[in-house]
Design a protein around this nucleic acid. Structure first.
Lengths: 249, 249
DNA sequence: TTGAGTTGTTCCGCATTGCGGAACATAATT
DNA sequence: AATTATGTTCCGCAATGCGGAACAACTCAA
């Protein structure tokens, strides 16, 4: 990218979206000062941005005058989801698998070095982090992230690896080694696994869905106490592999 | 609002968000020309905006170079949802009600003259429009919309009525009359209904959740062939009323 | 294959829009 | 009451966003 291209970048838009993106899971209403700190912008700039976002309906103010995301933000995401044909096709089979196994079944897409869940069927007895449409998990240390990584072309894997190296810093060699192991295993078994690596008490296996655009992967996860890794590989993984094959485009 | 306040409005941000909001349910990838038409902006402006949104990760380009919303848009919505305590509390009871009745149970919030769904438990045998987090339905002609309207203070009802009048134009008197009937009925029964008004084959009843902020309402809907309106009022509505009371803040 | 039409991208001169420090108002705390 | 913290608005400034035009690339029909 040369300098001319930076002239096309609309900074005001980026800043406004940074304000929206400053909200994290569990946040309630935030004030302008907190938002200014999170975004690294001057208070007056943030004040103008929140004013604009309120007028547009993407933020609303509570009684104390603080801001929280308004439901209109959800409608942006809805449009994103409703364009995903594969998600619609996958929904019922995923629900079925979740019911049969008693595990959580999720569908995810890569976004940079993260996975964004686009569909979730959660087991009734939930353990672990919130599995929810729109929530994200790391790419490198989760089964679903690894599956998405495997589906990348080598050049893209290289690119992503660079981003990950930046992110993990000194810990990257270790993470990379495990990613390499996963690649070998994927080549032999057709699935990726994460046994307690991301969350100590959670096992998961995942498989990319061939031919999907944007590339997606399907994941099955549950509590570690239920099944040993060997049983996961024998009993659960084949079902996920089969489901991914059914969903292949 | 005086003219000075317009100086605080960041037009570039608004335009960028208009581009994101131009995507509708079912849209796949859109080109710059289509987006320019939908937003009423010049092509070159849209080109700069889509360039920026791509760089930020909110749009992605497919092989043909057209744009579609990227999963990062979902993460904005996730933050909006995760700040809603009531939604979390409501989830399990909603799922239970849906299971017991075989109907779809939804939780919604008002956004202008629309309702945005923030939680949905769909019946297995689905009929009617997509009930999905982030999807919207009209305020004035749906049970849940009416319930949300009832929960407004009189001054706010007035404001909303003005917006609705603008929107419905010549049809507003008729819609207003039905809204008035719903208000009377709500006063007597504690719930709002829509029997085939929004969708011919769908009945629904809804109740606002007292004390909720932002104001929410809970809705139960299903196919008209299942139960007569009288049975809806006798058998389903009381359960919804009860659930709303349990969820009251 | 050629020409016409369509779509997408970039340029560039322009001016207005977005900026941010400062002033001011309001709210909270000691 | 004084101090601190937060939120809002002003206003001079300049750089950023703008959009018509030029150009590039693609598609389609004859």
């Amino acid at each position: 990218m040369n300098e001319d291209q930076d002239r096309l970048f609309v900074t005001a838009l980026a800043r406004g979206l940074d304000v929206l993106a400053a909200y994290q899971a569990g946040d309630r209403a935030l004030g302008n000062t907190e938002l200014a700190q999170r975004c690294g912008l001057p208070k007056s700039t943030v004040s103008r941005l929140t004013y604009t976002l309120c007028k547009l309906g993407y933020l609303s103010q509570d009684e104390s005058g603080k801001y929280r995301p308004a439901p209109a933000v959800l409608t942006l995401g809805f449009a994103a989801l409703s364009g995903l044909d594969l998600r619609e096709r996958a929904r019922e089979p995923m629900r079925r698998l979740s019911k049969e196994t008693g595990l959580s079944v999720t569908l995810g897409v890569r976004q940079g070095t993260r996975v964004v869940y686009v569909e979730t069927c959660r087991a009734l007895t939930r353990v672990g982090i919130r599995l929810e449409v729109g929530s994200t998990v790391p790419l490198a240390t989760t089964a679903i992230g690894r599956a998405l990584y495997m589906a990348l072309a080598p050049a893209e894997q290289q690119e992503v690896a660079c981003l990950l190296a930046d992110e993990y810093g000194a810990r990257w060699p270790e993470v990379a080694a495990r990613l390499q192991v996963a690649q070998t295993t994927y080549g032999e078994t057709g699935f990726c696994a994460s046994y307690g690596e991301f969350e100590p008490d959670i096992h998961a296996v995942a498989v990319p869905i061939a031919g999907s655009a944007p590339a997606m992967a399907i994941n099955c996860s549950g509590p570690a106490y239920r099944l040993t890794p060997a049983r996961w590989a024998e009993e659960i993984a084949p079902q996920v592999v089969k489901l991914a094959a059914q969903l292949a485009v």
